[in-house]
């Protein structure tokens, strides 16, 4: 039987109205329906953080967020951060400091970092390590990710 419902919310500032099974995860809505593939599927269990997006100002795992709980929500993905080809200051810092290597974890880390910096979260190394603890990276040892965030925060 078709159990789809109609859902309305905003993605990257644009209104979205779509029909979907209510327990469809936001990850699939973004990647498959909206073709916003910047959000990555790393584990599907809310552990690796590669699918981190911002919902109503908070960093969440898109793989654990059912579309039924998005009614009226404001969703932001990595695609929202840069204005066309012009990188945001956070993205620019990642480029200059070596904060991205293979790039699989990068969109999720950028979104977690954006949510943290927006709400005025602390930027000493200890605070950033804790803030990053829901995002796994296998390439960098996190050091240049933290440096990137600190450079971006200092530039503000």
């Amino acid at each position: 039987m078709n159990n789809d419902h109609v859902f309305r919310f905003h993605v990257n500032g644009q209104p979205v109205e779509m029909q979907a099974p209510p327990m469809q995860r936001l990850l699939d809505v973004l990647r498959e329906t909206l073709r916003l593939t910047g959000t990555k599927n790393g584990c599907g269990q809310g552990i690796c953080g590669a699918c981190t997006v911002i919902v109503n100002g908070q960093a969440v795992s898109a793989c654990l967020t059912p579309v039924v709980q998005l009614e009226g929500a404001d969703v932001q993905t990595v695609e929202y951060l840069s204005d066309r080809d012009c990188l945001s200051s956070l993205q620019q810092s990642f480029l200059e400091c070596g904060g991205t290597q293979c790039g699989s974890c990068t969109p999720g880390i950028l979104m977690a970092a954006t949510a943290h910096l927006r709400r005025g979260g602390g930027t000493n190394t200890e605070e950033l390590r804790e803030m990053l603890s829901g995002n796994l990276c296998r390439c960098t040892g996190y050091i240049k990710i933290i440096e990137s965030m600190q450079q971006a925060a200092a530039a503000k």
């Binding site: 593939t37 910047g38 840069s82 990188l87 993205q91 990068t106």
Partner: peptide, 16 residues
């Protein structure tokens, strides 16, 4: 990194 900006914008495409 040459492909860095694409990775940071989220438009670098991995297989999936």
């Amino acid at each position: 990194r040459r492909e860095g900006a694409a990775k940071l914008r989220g438009d670098a495409q991995f297989l999936d």
